[in-house]
């Protein structure tokens, strides 16, 4: 039952991406090209999706369980940190470069030929590399901690433990 509705949701997502034009890399790049020939279509895609979902959240917030009985997601992290900012910048750079983000990359797989598969394989590799990159990024945390020693104690130990594990390999 969960899989059936997951398939339905995925299918509707894919259909929406196709209908909206999000599978067209030229259109996506046109939206990001604010200093060139800017194409505002994606503002309507985002606006439509967000406003529909904003209505859904009104009902979702009142529920403790989903219709299929599983707990609703949350509580959500409030943390705005370096990973969020740097990760989003990297993602955005790749999004602009090829005009593909993860959803449309899957939805347009049947139209994209070998190029779509190559992008997908590279994306999978990038995802597999992400935990290691996060550890590299945390090096900066320790550098900044040195200047504020009063905050070090809670986070320092796990960071060091991760490092010894990494160097043991």
């Amino acid at each position: 039952m969960r899989s059936f509705f997951a398939f339905l949701s995925g299918g509707l997502f894919g259909a929406g991406l196709l209908v909206s034009g999000m599978v067209d890399t030229k259109k996506v790049q046109g939206w990001l090209d604010i200093f060139g020939n800017w194409d505002p279509t994606l503002a309507f895609v985002m606006g439509g999706a967000v406003s529909m979902m904003a209505v859904v959240w009104i009902f979702a917030r009142k529920r403790e369980k989903s219709f299929l009985g599983s707990p609703m997601p949350g509580p959500f992290s409030q943390l705005v940190d370096r990973n969020l900012v740097v990760g989003s910048l990297l993602f955005g750079a790749g999004w602009g470069l090829a005009g593909l983000c993860p959803g449309p990359a899957m939805a347009s797989l049947s139209f994209n030929g070998w190029e779509g598969w190559l992008f997908l394989i590279a994306m999978g590799l990038g995802m597999a590399m992400a935990p290691r990159l996060k550890i590299w990024l945390s090096v900066f945390d320790r550098a900044s901690m040195d200047t504020t020693p009063s905050d070090t104690s809670p986070d320092e130990k796990p960071a060091l433990a991760r490092d010894t594990r990494a160097s043991a390999r």
Binding site: G87, G94, A98, M127, A130
Partner: peptide
């Protein structure tokens, strides 16, 4: 682009 999108979204 694939590497950037994959790594960036997971980070």
């Amino acid at each position: 682009a694939g590497l950037l999108v994959g790594a960036g979204t997971r980070i």
